[in-house]
Every structure is written in C-alpha cells, then in structure tokens.
Amino acid sequence: MKKILFTSAMAFLMFACGNNKKDSSGSGISIDGSSTVYPVTEAIAEEYRNEDSEVDVTIGVSGTGGGFQKFGRGDIDIANASRSIKEDEKAIAAENNIKFIELEVAYDGLAVIAHPENDWLDCITVEELKTIWEPAAQGKIKRWNQIRSEWPDEEIHLYGPGVASGTFDYFTEAINGKSGSSRGDYTASEDDNVLVQGVSGDKYGLGFFGLAYYAENSNKLKLVGVDGGEGCVEPTAETVSNGSYAPLSRPLFVYVNSSSIQNNPKVIDFMEFYLEEVPSLLKDVGYVPLTEEEYKRERKKFSNFVEQNKAE
C-alpha cells in the first residue's frame, strides 16, 4: 500500500516537474475552427499524409468563432471558417500584428426540406420563407394555409439548426436580413441528423439544413426548390456552384496566417496541395466545388500572398 502511494506520488512529481515546455510549433501545422469546414480539411490532411508523412497536421473543432479567436492570438496556422471574418475579429488579429489571407475552398448549399408525402410544396419563395421564419412569425404563423391559401389547413412543424450553428447564422442573414434574428418556437438541434429524423417522420414538417445531409437521406426527404426572384431553383452541385441557387448557397473559407508562411514552408506546401486537391475530394464529404476559374483565382491569390510575405 505504502509502495503504491509512494510510486504514484513520485510519478506525479516527475510528470509535474520533469517536462519543460516543448516547442509545439515545429514543423507541424495546426488548424482549428468551423465544424462545417472540418470534413474538407480532414480529407486534405488525410491525403497530405501520403505526400509528406513527416508533417503532423492537427485539426480542432472550436467553431468558426472559436477558431478566429485562436487565429487572432496567433495560436494556429490556419483557421477553418463557414463565414467571413468579422470586424472585431480582424481588429484582434491586427492588434497582435497578424496578417492573413482568406481563401474560398468550397460551396455549401442550405437545403429546404419537406416530408416525401408532402404533395403541395415543390417550390417556395424567399418571401414565403421569411414569412415563416422571421421573428414576427413567432406564435402567429402556425398553419400551412397562412403562408399560401391553397395549402392545407394543417399545423406546420418547423425544424432547424440551433443558434450556436453557423448554418443558423447564414440562413437567418440570407432570409431574414439579419444574422441571428429568427423565430424561436421551432424544433432546434445542432446535429443535422436529428433534423433529418424530425422532418422525415412528420408529414406537415418543414426544415432546413446542409445540402450534404439531404444527399445522404434523399430517399426519406423531399427537396424543395427556392425562388429568389428568378424562378424556382433546386439546389444541385451545378446551381450551388454557379450561384443560381440564391440566396441559400454560401462559400466555405480557410484563413492562413502570414507568419506561418514565413516560418514554416510546410504550410505553403500544404495550402498548395489543398487548393490543388480539394475539388476532387469534395464529393466524398458532400460539398460542392468552386468552378475551375475560381480555383485558379484562389491559387493565384495565394501565390501572390506567399511572394509578398517571403519578400518581407
């Protein structure tokens, strides 16, 4: 007994004192941020190991906001983001003398979804979506026929992502005009799979979530087209990437710190690999690639950024 206590106490002391801080920067690449962008960057990191297995790429999921916080402090080399950096986040980065570049890597569509037995809804206008989801609708818009009179006189059941999700931010901004402004009386979940289950079991349900979740469950759900003023458009790889599925398609970003480019040539290598390989890997994770032109533009943008920072 005494021995056990003694050894564990000794081991404790050894661990507590013996390990001085190890330099964690090294040749590793640290990435953090959005959970939406995570699968893309994970796929790249996985493939990059075949290129250069010496480089340890690590990816965290602290959310877009959490990622920018670390990015602004200079804790990470690359930030995954499902929206552009905000002014206050920029200000923090500037305070810490961090210069960066924003690169678009993919598109994500938000799909509006109904139950497969729903035979009245094929297309919905942006105004109608606003009628349903705006804060003023809370407690008032409760039946399908309140939105369009020929729709059934039945209760409408709404499903959507919770407030902490980037998808929620994006949808509310695109539809209601202000990020985060929405009615609160709907079934909310941060896990899109829960929303899939909800809508697929509810004939009078209506929901929205990432297009990838529809693609995996298309047999249980009905995809609704969205009319943004120029006729009805269903989200497909094509309509999302050429921008005609508006306003519910959004770009996904990665942000690269300039000092990482100066200190760690592997970051340049990794990002070049990223922009080269990402179109072919996106299918596996369910997102839509940019057009070839746009990737060329992003590659050019990145190589200019590298030139600039190397020269300094």
């Binding site: 995570y38 990191a45 190991r49 340890d56 690590t58 990816i59 965290g60 999921v61 602290s62």
Partner: peptide, 10 residues
C-alpha cells in the same frame, strides 16, 4: 474541448 483537445490528430 474547452481546453483545446483536437478532433483530427494523426
């Protein structure tokens, strides 16, 4: 997660 544990570690 709060202390910064990662999701992808090779």
């Amino acid at each position: 997660i709060v202390i910064g544990a990662l999701t992808y570690v090779p």
